[in-house]
């Protein structure tokens, strides 16, 4: 300590102490932080690698070994994580059978596996990402405004009550009654199958939230008029009329006719 005590009053003491401290703190920080990023990078890489493995076994036969696409399936380069999550989480992919369009069914991959597949495809090229919790928070969204937007942008295919509708050659807009907010959001940003892409330029995030709020409201809305008849409009009303109602009316007429004999 004599060495330090002897130089304690030196004018260079404070700056050199500071320099040593800075080097020490900086060095330690650099060491620790690089270790953290290395860990994070490792985890991301693991997900991508795992996704790649799943991809190679489950998807590559149609979409190609490098997701470049083939005669049986489109390229997935640039479709983004949102598209993968939508297609896989709704069970549309992997495809059950070739047809007019992919049919929603029980998902074939777990949530983790789906995330890994999405990570892999997202790693190929930038594309629409899986929406954040903040983007899906529609608590404060304006339902009525969402209704207007829904009728302007969605109802011509998905029907005013969100029951879905027919498109050409066996394609169809599916019913929205089972769709989760995340799936709705992902469908809007990725435009699956016949659906157009509603980018944030066309429909800002706030408007997407409003639409999600309106559809979620439709999903739980009660039927003040009684039996809903599927909310598909006059076709089922007519069917009900000509079967149940006329059976009752003509049954009553026959009953009265028989009594008089």
């Amino acid at each position: 300590m004599k060495f330090l005590a002897a130089r304690r009053r030196s004018p260079l003491f404070a700056p050199s102490l500071l320099a040593i401290a800075l080097v020490a703190v900086g060095g330690a920080y650099a060491a620790i932080s690089s270790a953290q990023t290395a860990q994070a990078a490792d985890a991301g890489q693991v997900a991508i690698d795992e996704g790649n493995k799943l991809y190679l076994t489950g998807c590559s036969s149609c979409h190609g070994m490098q997701a470049e696409g083939s005669a049986n399936g489109p390229t997935l380069i640039g479709v983004g994580a949102a598209s993968v999550h939508f297609q896989v989480a709704t069970g549309r992919m992997p495809l059950a059978a070739p047809g007019a369009q992919a049919v929603a069914k029980e998902p074939q991959y777990s949530a983790d596996e789906t995330a890994q597949l999405a990570a892999y495809v997202a790693s190929l090229a930038p594309g629409p990402a899986i929406p954040t919790a903040e983007q899906l928070d529609y608590e404060d969204a304006d339902i009525a405004e969402g209704g207007v937007l829904f009728r302007v942008n969605c109802a011509q295919c998905h029907q005013a009550a969100g029951q879905g509708g027919a498109l050409t050659y066996g394609k169809y807009a599916p019913s929205l009654m089972e769709a989760t907010p995340q799936q709705m959001y992902e469908a809007m940003v990725s435009g699956p199958q016949s659906m157009p892409v509603f980018s944030n330029g066309t429909l800002p995030v706030e408007e997407k939230k409003a639409i999600i709020a309106y559809v979620s409201e439709l999903q739980v809305a009660p039927n003040p008029g009684g039996l809903s008849l599927g909310r598909v409009g006059p076709v089922t009303e007519g069917l009900f009329l000509w079967t149940a109602v006329f059976a009752a009316l003509i049954g009553a007429a026959v009953w009265i006719g028989i009594k008089a004999r």
Binding site: H158, Q163, G233, V235, G238
Partner: peptide, 8 residues
């Protein structure tokens, strides 16, 4: 709306 129909 899709599925717009008249009454029967």
């Amino acid at each position: 709306s899709a599925g717009s129909q008249p009454d029967w």
